[in-house]
């Protein structure tokens, strides 16, 4: 079970909340203070991407963020409920749902790609997967042996 699980409506204003919660749990889990900025940014990017996907696909379900504390690492899983999201697909080309291939969708995808570029540039251990039920971005960071408890 996740140490902390967060579910929020796919609205941009909640992404900041997810960043704050993730950083707080990461700090408690013993993630190095110097890395917390990266955790905050990476989880923000993953959540922004998920919010964008839900909104552009009219998915009413919430975004799920799992914050998982293990012995030696701290993991974050950000899940969306948009099936089979193409990762690294040709920009501007939409899936088989007949979405118009307008300039706006191309811009959205360019932004989406930049978000993934930031995540992969920041996080060494990252995995992006997609299934019939939705996509998940998994990221993890090492924790220091004896976290300072509040």
């Amino acid at each position: 079970m996740a140490t902390v699980e967060l579910r929020f409506s796919a609205l941009p204003e909640h992404v900041r909340t997810a960043r704050l919660v993730a950083a707080a749990v990461a700090r408690r889990a013993g993630v190095d203070e110097a890395v917390l900025d990266e955790v905050r940014l990476a989880v923000g990017e993953a959540c922004s991407r998920a919010v964008g996907l839900h909104r552009s696909n009219d998915v009413a379900a919430p975004i799920t963020v799992m914050l998982i504390e293990d012995e030696k690492k701290f993991s974050i899983e950000v899940g969306d409920e948009v099936p089979g999201t193409p990762v690294g697909s040709v920009p501007g080309v939409q899936g088989a749902d007949g979405e118009p291939d307008g300039a706006e969708s191309a811009a959205d995808e360019a932004e989406d790609e930049m978000g993934l570029a930031v995540i992969s540039g920041l996080v060494d251990d990252v995995e992006v997967s997609s299934t019939e039920t939705g996509g998940v971005i998994r990221m993890s960071w090492p924790t220091v042996p004896d976290p300072v408890l509040p």
């Binding site: 905050r40 990017e45 922004s48 811009a107 932004e111 930049m114 978000g115 930031v118």
Partner: peptide
């Protein structure tokens, strides 16, 4: 204090 890829865009 904080900038993400949306801001870069």
């Amino acid at each position: 204090d904080f900038l993400d890829s949306t801001g870069l865009g």
